[in-house]
């Protein structure tokens, strides 16, 4: 299994960043960067990461099951993550999450038929003072109101088709 030249470059740099013989350390970052490119954690990917980091596939599987950002099935092209944790909750995070679900007709971790959008209710994402907050893929959006969210999603929908 090979990745894009950029990612391959990142990985070889990554593997060198740990002390000699400690390549296992690259397992978590390698998985999440690879997921961004592959779309999800496939068993082929697990085997590949195991090979590159010198561990057994089982040791990689243990890691995959543990971290909540690693998904075994692909999320949408735009993965909308709404924080409903305490600071967001207090200023409408839960309502915002419900609104998003209705808007996209999805439940937690569900993906639209066209694979464009997916939703996830997530934990505190470190935007508490600018709540309610969401992340679309890795992009933060602060002080999000239902209206602002609609605009965001509509803009993305346009981009999609």
């Amino acid at each position: 299994m090979t990745f894009s030249p950029e990612l391959e470059a990142r990985f070889s740099k990554m593997l060198e960043s740990y002390p000699p013989g400690r390549q296992r350390s690259a397992v978590v970052p390698m998985l999440i960067y690879a997921q961004d490119e592959v779309g999800s954690i496939t068993s082929e990917l697990v085997a590949e990461v195991a090979k590159r980091c010198g561990v057994t596939p089982l040791q990689v599987e243990e890691v995959v099951g543990y971290y909540s950002m690693l998904h075994r099935k692909p999320m949408g092209k735009y993965h909308v993550q709404v924080c409903t944790n305490i600071s967001c909750l207090l200023v409408g995070g839960e309502e915002l999450y419900e609104h998003t679900c209705k808007k996209l007709g999805l439940g937690n971790k569900e993906v639209t038929a066209d694979g464009q959008f997916s939703i996830e209710e997530v934990e505190c994402m470190g935007a508490c003072s600018w709540a309610p907050a969401i992340q679309i893929n890795y992009d933060f959006h602060h002080h999000v109101t239902p209206e602002k969210l609609d605009q965001l999603l509509d803009a993305l929908k346009k981009k999609a088709n």
Binding site: S17, R22, R24, S25, A26, V27, V28, P29, L31, I32, Y33, C53, V55, Q59, E62, V63, Y66, Y67, S68, M69, L70, E123
Partner: peptide
């Protein structure tokens, strides 16, 4: 200096869980 990415786990903020995570294991 190197950066190292986590992958979604509050427990990995606990210093020793962080170290296990840094070593490529469950946190």
């Amino acid at each position: 200096i190197y950066t190292h990415s986590g992958a979604g786990a509050y427990e990995c903020g606990e210093e020793t869980a962080l170290l296990d995570s840094l070593e490529g294991k469950r946190g």
